[in-house]
Design a protein around this nucleic acid. Structure first.
Lengths: 107, 107
DNA sequence: GCTACTCATAACTAAACTCGAATATGATAG
DNA sequence: CTATCATATTCGAGTTTAGTTATGAGTAGC
């Protein structure tokens, strides 16, 4: 169920989709109608965005009668955090190497 | 120079662009020709992607004669980290509230 | 001066994405 | 069984985006 950074970035790039995910993080489990009320687009659009979020592993769904409840799965953000950590550490490692070099040049 | 999560997600959603940023994080300062060699697209495409990264504050450029040196600016990833932290904390806060509720229901 | 080199921009094409309308599917109520 | 409600899917139009080639602007070296 864990997706790479690529799918995460692409999925979260859309503002409407990100807003849906944010609402689910804030308010917990919600139905499609409830999410559609808060959104600025039609119900089919909301359903499609939820499908994309689900395929990326960012949300989970639960069927109950004719309702579908969606909830956020923030654990799916892991690879995204790992990626930013990696990029930052690359940079810091380079800074450290530069400092070492300058120290060696001093003596 | 600090950009919101929206611009960051949209800018990093493209694989080619993200690869350029990753290379700059790993290898430090590089010229456009050097970056084009490693990329799988033409030089104009690389230039456009670098422009997008620069507008998002993710890279900085330095002109030296007829060369332009680009370098990563990982500090720009801050809002992205803040956003993921916020989403995770929303979720954890909800879990905590749920546990409290269950404790109250026990007694 | 001229030529070669580096990078950015312009103009265009093709593919991808998003949206709403209409429709299909599936479940409950009467 | 039929009607209605909740959600998903299909389809076509409009928009955005990334890619290309061609070209322009600025610099280095002869």
């Amino acid at each position: 169920m864990t997706t790479g950074p690529d799918a995460l970035f692409r999925t979260l790039a859309d503002p409407t989709r990100r807003a849906l995910f944010e609402q689910l993080c804030r308010e917990g489990e919600l139905t499609v109608t409830r999410l559609t009320e808060g959104a600025s687009v039609s119900q089919p659009a909301v359903s499609k965005h939820l499908g994309a979020l689900r395929r990326a592993g960012l949300v989970l769904d639960r069927h109950e009668g004719r309702h579908t409840h969606y909830r956020a799965n923030p654990e799916a953000l892991g690879p995204l955090r790992d990626w930013t950590d990696e990029m930052t550490s690359f940079w810091e490692r380079r800074i450290d190497a530069l400092e070492d070099l300058m120290k060696r040049m001093d003596r």
